[in-house]
Structures are given as structure tokens and as C-alpha cells.
Measured scan of single mutants.
Amino acid sequence: DEVEIEDFQYDEDSETYFYPCPCGDNFSITKEDLENGEDVATCPSCSLIIKVIYD
């Protein structure tokens, strides 16, 4: 799936974006990952991944 970065929750302390996963955990991707060109957020509890859409 693809999710807009605006739909993520941002945690300023950890500089990490979170998005709810269907399994009950959260996908996460850090601001640093995005700045380095990464665009895939992973869920630590299951095998799902999502593509992050940002400009």
C-alpha cells in the first residue's frame, strides 16, 4: 500500500513518523530515513510494509 506522509503521526522527540498497521502495531520511518531517500515504512510486529508518499 501507499500512504501520504500527511497521514502519519509525527513524534518530535524521536523524529519518527508512525502510521497504524492492521495488526495493531505501527509502521514507522524516521525523518533521517526520509532525508536519505528511504520511502518504505515497516511494521516491527508483522511482515507488512507500506510505501511513503511525500514531496
Rank of each mutant, 00 (worst) to 15 (best):
Y54W: 08
V52D: 02
E32S: 08
D33E: 12
E4I: 15
F18N: 13
I29L: 08
V40K: 08
D13W: 03
N36E: 14
L48N: 14
I5M: 07
A41C: 13
C23N: 11
E6Y: 10
I5H: 05
V40L: 04
E38R: 08
K31S: 03
D25H: 08
N36Y: 03
D13I: 13
K31V: 12
I5C: 04
V3L: 10
P20S: 13
F27V: 10
A41L: 08
E32V: 04
E15M: 06
L48R: 11
D11C: 12
S28H: 06
E4V: 07
P20G: 05
Q9L: 08
G24I: 02
D11V: 12
Y17G: 03
I29F: 15
D39E: 05
D25V: 06
Y17E: 00
Q9W: 01
Q9D: 10
V52F: 12
E4P: 03
E38T: 09
S28C: 07
Y17S: 02
A41N: 13
D7C: 05
L34K: 12
A41S: 13
C43D: 00
C23W: 02
S14V: 14
S14D: 07
S28Y: 08
C23K: 06
I50W: 02
D39G: 12
D33Y: 11
Y10P: 01
Y17Q: 02
E32W: 04
S45I: 06
F8N: 00
Y54G: 11
T42A: 15
D33H: 03
D7N: 11
C21S: 01
D13E: 12
C23H: 02
E32H: 15
S14F: 05
N26P: 09
G37P: 06
I50M: 11
S47M: 06
S47R: 09
E2K: 14
E4Q: 04
I49N: 10
Y10N: 03
K31T: 02
E32D: 02
L34Q: 08
L48I: 04
T42Q: 14
D55L: 02
E38V: 04
F18M: 06
E6T: 07
C46R: 00
D11M: 12
D1Y: 05
Y54V: 13
S47D: 13
Y19S: 09
I53W: 02
P44E: 06
E15K: 13
E35H: 03
P22I: 09
V40T: 04
P44Y: 08
G37E: 10
I49Y: 01
D11T: 07
D25G: 13
G24V: 04
Y54S: 08
G24K: 10
E2R: 05
N26M: 07
F8T: 02
I49D: 11
V52S: 05
C21Y: 00
C23V: 01
D25C: 05
C23P: 00
E6V: 06
E6I: 13
N36P: 07
E4H: 05
D13V: 09
F18G: 14
V52E: 00
I50L: 11
T42G: 12
G24P: 01
N26K: 12
K31G: 04
F27N: 15
K51F: 05
V40W: 14
Y54T: 14
L48T: 08
S45D: 03
S45K: 04
E35Q: 11
L34I: 04
I29G: 04
S28G: 08
N36I: 02
N26A: 11
T16M: 02
F18T: 08
K31W: 02
D7W: 14
G37T: 06
F18A: 05
S28I: 14
G24F: 02
I29Q: 04
P20F: 07
T16F: 08
D11P: 00
F18I: 02
S14N: 10
I50G: 02
G37F: 10
G24R: 08
S28W: 08
D25K: 07
E35T: 13
E2G: 05
S14T: 12
Q9A: 02
P20H: 07
K51I: 10
F27Q: 14
Y19W: 03
Q9R: 09
E38A: 09
I5V: 02
D55T: 05
E38L: 06
F18C: 06
D39L: 13
Y19P: 00
S28A: 07
S45V: 12
D1C: 15
V40Q: 15
P22Q: 10
P22Y: 02
D7F: 03
Y19G: 04
L34Y: 14
E4K: 03
P44V: 02
S28L: 08
I29C: 03
Y10C: 14
A41D: 01
Y19D: 04
